[in-house]
Design a protein around this nucleic acid. Structure first.
Lengths: 136, 136
DNA sequence: TAATTCCCTATCGATTTAATAGGAATTTCA
DNA sequence: TGAAATTCCTATTAAATCGATAGGGAATTA
C-alpha cells in the first residue's frame, strides 16, 4: 500500500510543476488545493527539500518551488525518498538490500524469484515516468 | 512491503508443490523446513485451505496438501488472498476498488495515473506466474 | 481410549502511520 | 525597528497493523 506521505508528496510535486513559474508557493495553498492536512504536508515538503527536490524561501512571499525541471525528476528517486524501497522484500532491493533471516539460499527461494520480477516491472514504470509525465 | 504472512504462505505452497505427491504434509514439517513459527504458519495454512488452495486431514498421518495442480495456481489469486489488493492505492484496484477521500477527479490525479501503470505491470507478472513456475 | 494433528478464537507487544502541537528562526515590509 | 508572514524543527499521540503466542476444541487413527 502506498503511504499517504508518498501520495501527498507526489500531489504536491505535481502541483508545483503545474505552476511552472519559479515563484514560491505556500504550504497553505498546496494543502488547501490538494485537500491535505497542512501540518502533515509541512513535514513532507521538508523531506523533499532536504533531498534536493525543492527549494524554499521564508517570510512573506515565501514558499516552496522546484529546483529541477519536471522532466528531470524521475519517479524512481521520488519514490525512494518518500516511500523507501521499491522492492517488496529487502532481499531483492537494489538500494536497500538486506538478507532474509529465514532463507538459507536466495537463489533457490521462490519468493525471491517472484519478487525479483515484480521489482523489475515496477522499476521500469518508475524509470519511464518523470514528474513531467504526470501532469498532462 | 510484502507481509510475512504472504511470504510464508508462498514458501509453504512451494514446499507442498515440490513434494508433488498428494500425501498430507504436517504443519510442523513445513514450519521446520522453511524456518517459520509453527503457530503463525498454522493460521496461514488455514486461510489457504478456506480459500480453496489446500485440503487437510486430521489425526495421525494428517496434514495439508494441494488440491489443484501447481500450474493451475495463479499468483494473482494467491497474492489477493494472502496480501490483499495488488494495487498500491484503492482507487486503481480491480478487486478492492475504493474512491479516494481527497481526490475530486481520479482522471486528473497524477498519483492515479502512475499507480495504474504500476498495477498493470505487477498484474502482468502475477498473471504470468503459477506455482509451478516458482519451483524449478 | 490415547495419541496425533488440524481447527478456532482471543490476545499481546512492537512497530508504523498519519496527524497534531508548539514554538524557533528567518525574511519582508511598513 | 518591529510586526507579520512563512518555513523550520522536535516531540508527542492515537490508531492501525503485524507478527507472534496461548490455549484449548474437534476429528481421526490405531
Amino acid at each position: 500500500m502506498l503511504s499517504k506521505k508518498t501520495k501527498y508528496g507526489l500531489k504536491a510535486l505535481t502541483y508545483l510543476a503545474s505552476m511552472d513559474g519559479k515563484e514560491p508557493v505556500q504550504i497553505a495553498e498546496i494543502a488547501k488545493h490538494e485537500n491535505i492536512s497542512q501540518k502533515f504536508l509541512e513535514s513532507i515538503l521538508l523531506t523533499l527539500r532536504r533531498n534536493g527536490f525543492l527549494g524554499s524561501k521564508k517570510g512573506k512571499g515565501g514558499g516552496y518551488y522546484l529546483i529541477r525541471e519536471p522532466h528531470e525528476i524521475l519517479m524512481t528517486s521520488v519514490i525512494r525518498v518518500l516511500e523507501g524501497p521499491i522492492a517488496m522484500v529487502p532481499c531483492v532491493s537494489l538500494n536497500f538490500y538486506e538478507k532474509c533471516d529465514d532463507c538459507p539460499d536466495e537463489n533457490k527461494c521462490s519468493v525471491h524469484k517472484l519478487m525479483l520480477q515484480v521489482r523489475d516491472s515496477a522499476l521500469e514504470v518508475y524509470r519511464n515516468n518523470t514528474l513531467a509525465d504526470l501532469i498532462s
